[in-house]
Design a protein around this nucleic acid. Sequence first.
DNA 1: ACCTGAACACCGTTCAAGT
DNA 2: ACCTGAACACCGTTCAAGT
Lengths: 228, 228
Amino acid sequence: MAKTKRKAERREDALTRERIVDAAIALLDDEGEQGLTFRALAARLATGSGAIYWHVTNKDELLAAASDVVVSRALADVRAHATPEQTIGSVALAVFDSIDAHCWAGTQLARNPPTRALLQIVERIGRQLQALRVPAAVQFTAASVLGSYIISESRQNAANGRSSEPRPDRADFLASVASEWMQLDADEFPFIRQVASQLREHDDRAEFLAGIDLILAGIASARRADDR
Amino acid sequence: MAKTKRKAERREDALTRERIVDAAIALLDDEGEQGLTFRALAARLATGSGAIYWHVTNKDELLAAASDVVVSRALADVRAHATPEQTIGSVALAVFDSIDAHCWAGTQLARNPPTRALLQIVERIGRQLQALRVPAAVQFTAASVLGSYIISESRQNAANGRSSEPRPDRADFLASVASEWMQLDADEFPFIRQVASQLREHDDRAEFLAGIDLILAGIASARRADDR
DNA sequence: ACCTGAACACCGTTCAAGT
DNA sequence: ACCTGAACACCGTTCAAGT
């Protein structure tokens, strides 16, 4: 037993990539994106800043890994539903909510090359499209549109919202955006102004799902076009 | 004449916000996003780095302004077409191509609060939706989906592509992405792997427009649902 | 009012030296 | 192999001093 264990025997407080990424997530959640410094992270891990570089290539990679972990965990909890459309909606909401809870993660999802989490999202969606019998030629387009929309909207929501649970000032925020838009030139921005006037009864999460449904309707019509 | 001019009389080389933003755009195009420094910018303008702060609040605002100018110029060139759908396609392509030419501008478009350029995009699209007689309740959702998709896809294309005109290594790039995806676990990523195998005959710009059409189909179906 | 440029605070990253 | 922490290079921003 001692023999097989010897290599694996690690001190409880040994520095590992996993511990570093977890500490980074905690730091990002606590202090925001600008709170993540190698110095602060080293302090949290009770080590030197240089030690981190032994396990992680650089800050960029660390941020990507942190975002990956957060979104992957959220995706892992998504179960299949009765219809592919519902499953797609669940995947979308899982991403939306996890980025809402970790607002720094949104930026990372749009990175290039794509993070593994983004590939997971597209994979989950793609399978549902196949289950929906979307023609092969349309599958890539459909998955792209859904993926783009999910990332983009989740990101924007997180940038607006700061922390999901306690939103006392949400109404104030909407009102301030609305009043700002109403000050735009009436000739140049008639549409924006009209939208601004409806902004009060706005539910981000419901709006997000309405967008998903709109895209699904487009996919359904492409499928019908193919049947003919 | 001397009297009315006195206030407006400025030396040719006077520092103005406009000159600063233009120099920033040139610097960003030449050296990339990380090439924009107050020191480098000051050198280009033959002044001290502190002088820039008299005309611009900070780097963030400067980046936003630069992106705004670039995208606004592209939008200004878009003319109305025979159908609202075609006009929307033209707006989308104008944004896509301008970000492709200035790849640093994509990130800025997704800023919060929204840049003026994004409001212009949504405005142009919104008016076309009204021309299409999209029900009022759907207009906001439809404009959001289109806006999200345009920004997200343009950004990703720019991050991939580096400079639009000379793309000799484009095929190589696609091939390398494809082979990377083919190395993913076959059980975990069947859809991604299938998509990867079709990646060779991929035209980003055509794909982008196909996505726009898919969304427009969704909008059309929402319109029909309303008619009933 | 507007410009100059040195100085400040802070950060990612490296690396010689340790264990 | 892995950790330490001082040092390096570089940057956004400020500000006293100039015109």
